[in-house]
């Protein structure tokens, strides 16, 4: 059952992604596809931070694991955090195109593991959600953090104490610091 539904989603998504005015594209979802062609239970996504927020300049990769009883159970989303040892940083080579960001500085995202705390992906999940709507929800989460259930306590504290400027600047710093240059 889950396989059939995933097929349908894949079909809809692949049609939507090529449209410039689809909800996926408008919400900054650049890529959403299975990791390998033969397996529908591992997906990857690439998102752009929402315009007008401090995340606007960043691009992130997500790794999605779909359980076998999907859509009864929610898929697991995780920001991809690779080690930056061998990566060329975009800040060092201003001429290179900016690639993805290796860290997600966000109150509801674990800075080390990329784990995401979002209610609709946990206790509020319903089978009416889909992979694409979940990814869109994650993009929207970037612009509307929930500091009361934080995974990144430092950033959450900045928000809780009302230091919006400090928060914005710290986020921008991290994005600059961890964005790699694309070859």
């Amino acid at each position: 059952m889950s396989e059939k539904r995933l097929l349908k989603e894949l079909r809809t998504i692949s049609k939507e992604l090529v449209q410039e005015d689809s909800s996926l594209a408008l919400n900054g979802v650049l890529v959403l596809e299975p990791v390998s062609e033969g397996d529908l239970f591992e997906w990857r996504a690439r998102i752009r931070g929402p315009e007008g927020s401090c995340y606007a300049n960043g691009i992130w990769d997500l790794h999605i694991t779909v359980p076998s009883n999907y859509p009864t159970a929610p898929p697991t989303f995780r920001f991809v955090m690779s080690s930056e040892r061998n990566a060329r940083l975009a800040s060092d080579s201003p001429t290179a195109t900016r690639g993805r960001c290796l860290r997600m500085p966000h109150p509801n995202v674990n800075f080390e593991t990329g784990e995401i705390c979002l209610d609709i992906l946990q206790q509020m999940w319903t089978p009416a959600w889909s992979l694409s709507s979940s990814v869109v929800a994650i993009v929207m989460l970037l612009d509307s953090p929930e500091p009361l259930s934080p995974l990144n306590i430092d950033l959450a504290n900045l928000l809780k104490s009302g230091d919006q400027k400090g928060y914005d600047d710290l986020v921008k710093y991290y994005i600059e610091r961890f964005t790699i240059a694309e070859s």
């Binding site: 059939k4 539904r5 349908k8 809809t12 859509p71 009416a128």
Partner: peptide, 9 residues
Amino acid sequence: MLRCHICKD
């Protein structure tokens, strides 16, 4: 409208 929101069929 005629599709199920769970299985999308």
